[in-house]
Design a protein around this nucleic acid. Structure first.
Ligand SMILES: [Mn+2]
Ligand SMILES: [Mn+2]
Ligand SMILES: [Zn+2]
Ligand SMILES: [Zn+2]
Lengths: 144, 144
DNA sequence: ATTAATATGAAACTCATTATCAACTTGGGC
DNA sequence: GCCCAAGTTGATAATGAGTTTCATATTAAT
């Protein structure tokens, strides 16, 4: 859990774009890498603030954008209108099943659905570039 | 194309909630019903403005909310962050295939995908209440 | 250490949508 | 048709997530 690979990727991205390292970026990356959750900018901000109380919101957004461009992070836009960030590196593609009561995120995977999506796009003469599939409902604990 | 049924549904909704009819509501509903497109509030506003130049933006939003509550309209939230409105009454459930270059909307339907979604939800102990499936890509004319 | 380039935090701004509110309609009772 | 309580409207302010701006601070190459 030292995230050597991820850190190397970020360093390489920084280098390739002639950017610079900073305490803030390192800290935000660390906080992000240490959780497997689907965090909002606000949640990240609160977590980072505990280690560096002078951090600004804009730096969170800016850094998460960098991590996304570097291929370490995926931005998720679910129904509540707040962007969530999740690990991308070394995580295979998946979609989400979300409990609308408690907010639980379950990662789902369906090669069969992906195939059918391709088929549909092809049938209409489209070249598929991405898709969004989210299932909403009540989880085991919330449905009672 | 007189939309008798739709208008009756709206009238009944108005009655059931002790609301009132108004010129503006009638006009916005007419404009909405006459197109089969996936319109934004801005597009509706521009169209309605031609018939009633004093219309306000807020009235568009308010009326579209009423039409949605009445079951005549479905709000669509696609990636660009702008809500679109489409007919719901007498239209069976479908998802969308969208061209990211020209904005073309294609309505798609896949009972097989819907089944698989139910299966996945069940497997994780969820009760599915809704889902969002959008396919993005380049259409026949835009992919060249 | 110098210095040019980049990063930061605070605050202003954006953009879609919603809330507020005074003025204006609507519609049921007379 | 007139009254009038209740609902509606348009203008404008407010909201909230995210972005931009800018003066100041940090980074890293020399
Ligand atoms: Mn995930
Ligand atoms: Mn549609
Ligand atoms: Zn739950
Ligand atoms: Zn196209």
């Amino acid at each position: 859990m030292s995230f050597q690979k991820e850190k190397a990727i970020f360093t390489e991205y920084i280098r390739s774009k002639n950017l610079k390292h900073s305490e803030q970026r390192q800290l935000i990356m660390d906080v992000f890498l240490k959780t497997e959750k689907h965090l909002t900018a606000e949640e990240l901000y609160e977590m980072v603030k505990k280690k560096n109380p002078s951090i600004g919101y804009a730096t969170i957004y800016r850094t998460m954008k960098l991590l996304t461009e570097a291929g370490l992070c995926r931005e998720l836009h679910v129904v509540d209108g707040v962007t969530r960030y999740e690990h991308l590196y070394n995580h295979k593609h998946h979609d989400h099943l979300i409990c609308t009561k408690c907010g639980k995120f379950v990662e789902i995977e369906s090669p069969r659905i992906e195939e059918l999506q391709e088929k549909i796009a092809k049938k209409h003469g489209f070249i598929l570039t991405r898709h969004r599939l989210e299932l909403y409902g009540l989880c085991k604990s919330c449905k009672n």
